[in-house]
Design a protein around this nucleic acid. Structure first.
Lengths: 150, 150
DNA sequence: GCTTGCCTCTACAGTCGCTGTAGACTGTAT
DNA sequence: ATACAGTCTACAGCGACTGTAGAGGCAAGC
């Protein structure tokens, strides 16, 4: 296998790594992807290493890692002989975050279930769903954590 | 109980409903909270109805409802004799969204678990966590759904 | 009255991780 | 030659806020 391969345009890279073109350019702008070579007319040119790097980023994103962590992971990849404890820590933090979020969402599920099953139609004035949202005596946690989107 | 009560400033409302001052002003700017009366010097003045409305918004947000849905819910609250089917539909959609997200996060949890348990220390070059992120043959879903934050 | 110190005001920029748009240029196929 | 798809830059927008700057307001203690 030769190391030098015919370079591909951003569109081909996009399909190869299953990442949108605009997203690739965004990753470049924030330094997740390096600055690629350009053709004479100014089009970005990529090689197979870029496909691997972009696929890595995509998979890490699918696993929910924030961009800062991914930056760190890529940095570590370029120093293969360093200790992988940092890598492990990042992954464990991520697992902890996922589990925490799972707990929050499970609580939401229970409360929403209770709400919709107690609604038996009728007017808004007597709607149990509305009453449930109004009733903030229970489930009103004291924590000031930011509410996250689904 | 008299309907007319001594008005409170935004700071008191903030504590009463457990919503930050800046967030209250933001809710006003996007029309979730109405435009309040002002004191002579221009400070916002609120009453107990505002506490209830803001608490309603907060609880709905805690349940993950998007602002547009909350706008609809508040609108419906002002027409108590209308059918609560819309309310129920919004809540059921929300429950569906929560369940879908729970499924996604459970899958993430499994994969992250597998990653961190297979890491046994050592160098980055041989790190199983890194290998797992690089290995995008499995779990590479074809859906182009946007990746959501935790 | 004066100071101290918190409260509130407006207006705008920044957060995260992208997506969408506008308008111009390039490359390829027929 | 023409059509059409691909690519370029630059910037605005999304949701749901948060943070900052700089100014003015208010109650309590001296």
């Amino acid at each position: 296998m030769s190391i030098i391969m015919k370079p591909m345009t951003i569109g081909r890279l996009s399909k190869a790594a299953n990442v949108k073109i605009t997203t690739i350019r965004y990753y470049e702008s924030v330094g997740l992807m390096g600055t690629p070579d350009r053709s004479e007319s100014g089009q970005r040119l990529y090689g197979s290493l870029d496909v691997e790097r972009l696929s890595f980023i995509r998979h890490a994103r699918e696993l929910g890692f924030p961009m800062d962590d991914i930056r760190t992971l890529i940095e570590l990849q370029t120093h293969p002989s360093s200790d992988c404890a940092v890598v492990n820590k990042i992954a464990q933090n991520q697992l902890g975050a996922v589990r925490k979020r799972l707990g929050q969402l499970a609580a939401l599920e229970r409360e929403l279930e209770r709400m919709v099953t107690s609604c038996e139609g009728g007017k808004v004035a007597s709607c149990q769903v509305m009453a449930s949202i109004n009733d903030h005596t229970e489930c009103s946690s004291k924590d000031h954590e930011r509410i996250k989107p689904l």
